[in-house]
């Protein structure tokens, strides 16, 4: 599974793999790069050592599958979102700190802001909830989605939250005003993955069940408080996957990685929209991709119960 295409300027070298006994829905590195967290349908999240994949601890207690696991911006806490409708906050050592409830149905996604202390969660109740990881308070609930919310992403500055889902629409929320500011339309089918560029504040990438990767420019004049701007994609990239499920920017914003059905994985160069690599790296849908903070490694998490951690190498 690890090889480079003849014409590919980069290649992947698999460093190691870790497994859960059931499908894996989420993977995220800690800000210091020492650990990564995984979320699984086996009802657990696990913390692993990033250098070699050694298991550090298992977070148990959720009553159903775990859809998301990620670290808070300060790296001291782990956040999980579960099909059991709860969001939980844990220490890195695995001690439960808080159990946040309020959702009325399965959670399908979660995310943590790279700045500040925001947590967001979304799911089958069509709502998006905003939480504060330090106070553990419920800050806001955003309604308006017409169907299940499948993915979320904070902007790098922590001012915006994007949500997407089964209604094929991406919504961008202003976190200070707790208001919807933009609706992004163009996907034909579920929006499965979202990621804001860490370097280009308004650049948003989305991965769709329609097999496309789309780039959106969310910058521009702020709409008036009562107006919601509807914008179209800046770029649409046709993936080699029949369906995409996950997307992530590299820490420098130069690369965009996407995972999809049947284990398809792609890396694109953002500035010229050039495909750098397209490979089948798993045996089933890739539910999550995450870059290591050093930008030279990445992790792919799949329904095939495995996470692969890769070195990204330039082809010779």
């Amino acid at each position: 599974m690890e090889s480079k295409p003849d014409s590919s300027p980069i290649m992947l070298e698999r460093l190691y793999s870790v497994v859960h006994p059931n499908a894996i829905y989420g993977v995220a590195f800690s800000p210091d790069g020492e650990l990564f967290a995984s979320a699984s349908l086996d009802n657990t999240a696990r913390i692993w050592r990033a250098s070699d994949g050694a298991l550090v601890t298992t977070l148990t207690g959720h009553g159903d599958g775990v859809a998301f696991a990620g670290f808070t911006a300060d790296g001291r806490r782990v956040v999980t979102a579960s099909l059991d409708r709860s969001v939980r906050i844990w220490t890195r050592e695995g001690r439960l700190v808080a159990n946040l409830s309020g959702h009325q149905d399965y959670l399908a996604c979660g995310t943590v802001s790279a700045r500040g202390s925001w947590i967001a969660s979304g799911g089958f109740d069509k709502s998006v909830r905003l939480w504060d990881s330090q106070s553990t308070a419920s800050v806001a609930s955003f309604s308006g989605s017409d169907d299940t919310v499948q993915c979320l992403g904070f902007s790098a500055d922590g001012n915006w939250l994007a949500s997407g889902g089964d209604d094929a629409t991406i919504r961008v929320w202003n976190l200070a005003a707790h208001s919807l500011i933009r609706k992004l339309t163009g996907h034909v089918g579920t929006v499965e993955g979202l990621a804001f560029s860490p370097k280009d504040g308004g650049l948003l990438a989305s991965a769709g069940a329609d097999g496309t990767l789309r780039l959106w420019n969310c910058d521009g004049p702020a709409p008036t408080p009562s107006a919601v701007e509807t914008i179209s994609p800046m770029v649409t990239l046709d993936s080699s996957a029949t369906k995409l499920k996950s997307v992530a920017f590299s820490p420098d914003g130069v690369l965009l990685a996407a995972g999809g059905a049947e284990g398809r994985f792609e890396i694109w160069q953002v500035n010229d929209r050039k495909p750098l690599l397209a490979r089948t790296v798993h045996q089933n849908t890739i539910y999550a991709v995450a870059f290591h903070p050093d930008g030279r490694r990445l992790a792919t998490a799949s329904f095939d119960r495995s996470i692969h951690v890769w070195n990204i190498l330039a082809s010779e």
């Binding site: 349908l41 599958g65 099909l83 799911g123 089958f124 089933n284 849908t285 329904f303």
Partner: peptide
Amino acid sequence: GRPHGTNFENARDHFP
């Protein structure tokens, strides 16, 4: 189906 995996994701898991 979701959120417990689609019919086809589960099939790709169980069938082989």
